[in-house]
Amino acid sequence: MKAARKVLGVPLPACWLAPRTALPAAVLVVLGLVPVYAAATGDPFALTLFGRIEILAMAALSLNLIMGYGGMASFGHAAYLGIGGYAVGILWKEGIGSGFVQWPVAIAVSALFALVVGALSLRTRGVYFIMITLAFAQMVYYVAQGLDRYGGDDGMTIGSRSSFAGLVNLNNAAQLYYLCFALLLASLFLVSRLVNSRFGLVIEGTRSNERRMRAIGVSPFRYKLVCFVIAGALCGLAGALLANHTNFISPAMMYWTRSGDLMVMVILGGLGSLFGPVLGTVTYLLLEEALSRVTEYPGLFIGPALLLVAIFMHGGIEGLFGARRRD
């Protein structure tokens, strides 16, 4: 028997040109061609907008890993974006401009924070989990507000982007963009390998029935904690990218509504589907951008749209293509 063709380690469905696979492919191709478009039209704004989309898509991917696959609905995920960003900003301020230091620190501190938050929060369930993760994110928000040396409430402009010893030059907009793109692809690969491994099976099994997982001899807590830490680290990396993308850090990037935005992106795209968060981020941010060009009040349309999605579109955008709903 012929082995099934695989992409990113995932067996392709019988008809690989089905909408479910064609759409992600098309989105990735478009994302990959944005710098070409920007160079052709001389419109640098496209790079800024889509770079931001890619970075937040990474954050949404990491949130989906815990919320969609693991059933751990974190309402404080923007904290990791902030921690990653502040790691870059603080190290820059203290005279360490090398990305080889900044980025690993961003990842490590985010992972460490996720370890502490996870160890305490994973004792709780459901809405309590949502609220305790929110509480920890608010704490980080207030800590950042208190950091007067690093801008306090107003935030701080970062004078220079992370340097990578000539390997990549982040001051070149196209190179920064392609770095974001490459890291987004790498994150997709990482998440797909994770959820299709034995580890991923345990995580998903725990979401649907933790008691049964215990009964067959698995200790779910450790798996969930590791999953939580991986997601935190990944989102911390996205935060380091975001700080380089905007050259600016402020407590506002971790305010609870930012965490809400990330949740919206994931649920909009489709919980627990590999590509859903990317679709959700692209849709949400492009919709926001398009509406703010035609109306002064984009929220009047985005708000009801989200409500309608919540009421009628079970499973988000991915749900339209027959992905199963994971609650």
Partner: peptide, 15 residues
Amino acid sequence: PHLDHVLGTFGLLLF
């Protein structure tokens, strides 16, 4: 599911 509440009422908040 609670997450649908979060999505829907977050939309209402923006609105």
